[in-house]
Design a protein around this nucleic acid. Structure first.
Lengths: 257, 257
DNA sequence: CCATCTTTGTGCACGCGTTCACAAAGACAT
DNA sequence: ATGTCTTTGTGAACGCGTGCACAAAGATGG
């Protein structure tokens, strides 16, 4: 899920399927844990269990990277950690800017997982002048005016948007104009970006709604399909539905963001 | 993607494909925006543009819900908002507990998107006794000891885990034992859950790593495959690779095929 | 009532991703 | 060396998701 521009043939470039790329970080995490415990080698079965996937899938995934295993033995942990890191581009470190230092932005800035794996918080940016200079996670917040300068000076190519939905597209446009080509979007909006820019989104309420769907399904299965007393739709606009199946009714209980 | 237990045949229940379910919240958001502007009807083309998807895909998605459109006209906005809300189970509201009130947990508690769309924060829970009673987002934090009682009293079926990775599995086990059947996991760990429990994960560093991969690919495409001076791996464990195909240190070729 | 025009709903084909199942490859013991 | 045993790497089949392209449905105007 989640690349904004799904139009591209995706993995046309150089073999590795998108689905595999999405799992590599998972394998890497499991391997790193093994490495810390000084485990020398691991079989596809063990590693798959640790990563929560099927072992056949894991082997096929690795086969796209090359033949890094040894039959009858398994995979060399250290070697594989390096190979995957390199494939993911984690041998260099990536400066990242976080825009929007509210609750979420601050949480992200404090998140340890950044620095540990090839990512470095190059700057924290917020539109509120009152925030300027105030340190968050040891880094002073800078004003939006500085955005372009920071990106160009530090060669930032990855931006994280943690602003309110209303500001997201505008921030996105400025990031892209300044040279950012990869964006991680936490704002609940669809971002419009030009060709060549990758967008991934993380959306809280979408995840919750998907869970709610399954939850409802579970609940509805055991209970017989009783006529649930759901109020019929408002049908405020009756026009297209001349054949109104619901006479009265009132507003759906859903509200905006 | 990202349901922990992918084993289930997924959509076996009642038609609606998983991929479609994942997009419904997107449509709902776009429709809600239209509703606020009092737009009466919308065509699949317009709505698809607003949601950032293909119009054919949108129509097919809606076809799984039923025939709610009117040919030659489009879809009734209010009606569709209601239908999707009902399908997603948002006409009832879901009590949610958030476990782990650190930076991220606090951010989640403050996130407006929760309350607005059928979700209600039933409780904030943290293991630190010092946090107990302290209000976050207007809700007093409660100690982990209360977890089981809260879940049972409020009939909570959805839990959000925002703890450090080390505590996540343990918290998860307690949530499940107490009756939670859907979990949204922000901790960077694979959660093990019994059959029937849904897990969705949101993982920062994985998203960033995927972006890094594509970023590296973009950079590597324009620049010719110059011998990048990447330091070869430690290769601490040489054993399994006794048959070194290279005279010197095994240089990882940038790409297999 | 008929013709035309718009937009939905869907049959169909295609490609990606997943899984099975097995042959090949190497380790290890004798 | 040779045989056995373990585990990888992958060919092939299958199913899901996507997008095209078009017929059917209804609106609208004469």
């Amino acid at each position: 899920m989640a690349t904004g521009r799904t139009h591209r043939p995706a993995t046309r470039s150089r073999g590795i399927p998108e689905a595999t790329v999405a799992r590599l970080p998972l394998y890497l995490r499991a391997l790193t844990a093994l490495s810390e415990r000084s485990v020398p080698t691991v079989s596809s079965e063990e590693l798959a269990a640790a990563a929560g996937v099927n072992s056949a899938k894991l082997r096929k995934d690795f086969s796209y990277l090359g033949s890094y295993g040894t039959r009858g033995v398994g995979y060399d942990v250290e070697y594989l950690v390096y190979q995957i890191s390199r494939e993911l581009g984690l041998t260099q470190d990536w400066p990242v800017v976080i825009v929007g230092i509210g609750n979420l932005g601050a949480a992200l800035a404090n998140y340890g997982g950044f620095a540990s794996r090839g990512f470095r918080v190059a700057a924290l940016i917020d539109a509120d002048p009152g925030m300027a200079g105030k340190p968050v996670a040891g880094i002073p917040v800078q004003h939006t005016d500085e955005l372009e300068k920071i990106i160009q000076d530090d060669g930032v190519s990855i931006g994280v948007i943690a602003t309110p939905a209303g500001a997201a597209q505008q921030v996105c446009d400025r990031l892209v104009a300044a040279g950012v080509t990869s964006i991680l979007n936490f704002a609940p909006t669809v971002l419009n970006v030009p060709e060549g820019v990758d967008v991934r989104k993380v959306d809280l309420s979408i995840e919750l709604q998907i869970l709610a769907f399954h939850e409802q399904r579970k609940a509805g299965e055991e209970a017989g399909a009783g006529a649930d007393g759901a109020v019929p739709p408002v049908a405020a606009r009756k026009q297209p539905h001349s054949t109104d199946q619901g006479p009265d009714g009132d507003v759906p209980a859903v509200m905006p963001a």
